[in-house]
Simulated assay, not measured.
Amino acid sequence: MHHHDHALAIAERLAAEHAPAALGIGLFGSVAAGTDHPHSDIDLILAADSDTDNDTGTGTAVVQSEGRMATLTRKTPDDLEAAFTRPWEAVTAVAAWRGARLLHDPDGTMARLQARAHAWTWDQIPDADHWAASELVGLAEEVHKVHGMLATGRDRAAAANRAILALQLATPLAAAHRLTCGSENDLWDAVAAAEGPAWARAWDTATGVAPADHATGCRAALDLYRIAADRLAGHLDAADRVIVTTARDL
């Protein structure tokens, strides 16, 4: 059996097993889209009255089935719908819902959510720019840490904070550019394409895609913050703008 057909068969079997305790079940991600590789996980979302998984005590369970990893995320319909109003979730949730395959939907819960995704636009989150800019306030600390750790020769700490900047700046930039990505795997290329060559070069250098020495990689992460601040700081109130521009000027 082809790996994609095998993954679909596993997804359908898992959906049948969990159907009695779910309002609806959808298959998401690369397996739903038909772009999976043999090591792709099988991503199932279960709508349920309770967001607690009885087996794990959490909303997400990971299982191994016939050599494939499957992730089962259990959420209430209200929490699933809230993703369309949260910019940090909408970046990936909207496109994921649009491409989902509905495996179990007796009352139309999943179809209603998918219809909302198809009709969704960024206009439904009018404060997306303010949210994106506010993320820079929290990340200003990482800028100061990169400088401090470099100056005191604490290379691993500097590297950790450089990685935090590169990873956590992407979603705010995606919201600023009104992007929708099918998964986090698509986020990095989408932001690089939208923001342009300066961001792409800095991100590649900060994360090791482009080989560079440690200090150069750290400076590249600081460049990412500067680029983001230039785009977003104007959406902050005066007190927060001081925090971001101070870090930007470092």
Rank of each mutant, 00 (worst) to 15 (best):
Q64T: 13
R156V: 11
V62W: 06
R101L: 14
P211G: 01
G99F: 07
R68S: 12
A151P: 05
T207Q: 09
N161D: 12
G34K: 14
W97Q: 09
T109I: 13
L23K: 03
L103A: 02
E184T: 11
W88I: 09
L72E: 03
M1K: 05
F28I: 11
I42Q: 01
L173E: 05
A200C: 13
L113Y: 10
A221L: 10
P38R: 14
Q124D: 13
D223N: 14
W120L: 10
A140W: 02
T73W: 00
D55M: 04
A100Y: 01
L46R: 13
M1F: 08
A48S: 14
L179H: 09
D105K: 09
A70E: 01
R154M: 10
P211T: 11
T73M: 12
R248F: 02
D41K: 03
H18V: 10
A22H: 04
P211M: 10
S40V: 14
D49Y: 00
T171Y: 02
R241P: 10
T60H: 05
D189E: 15
L46P: 00
A16E: 15
K75Y: 13
A174K: 05
A151D: 09
C218V: 12
P20S: 11
A151F: 04
D105G: 07
L23W: 01
Q168R: 11
A163S: 09
R201Q: 15
D204W: 06
V242W: 06
E141S: 08
A61G: 00
A212T: 06
R162N: 10
L139S: 04
G138S: 14
L232N: 01
T71P: 00
A239P: 01
A175M: 12
D53S: 00
R74E: 13
S40L: 10
L139G: 07
I45L: 09
D186F: 07
A21L: 14
V63H: 01
W199M: 11
E135I: 04
E81V: 09
H39C: 00
G153A: 07
Q114L: 07
S50W: 03
G196K: 12
P197K: 06
G59F: 08
A128N: 13
V191S: 04
G182D: 02
V94T: 06
L14M: 10
H147E: 04
I25Y: 03
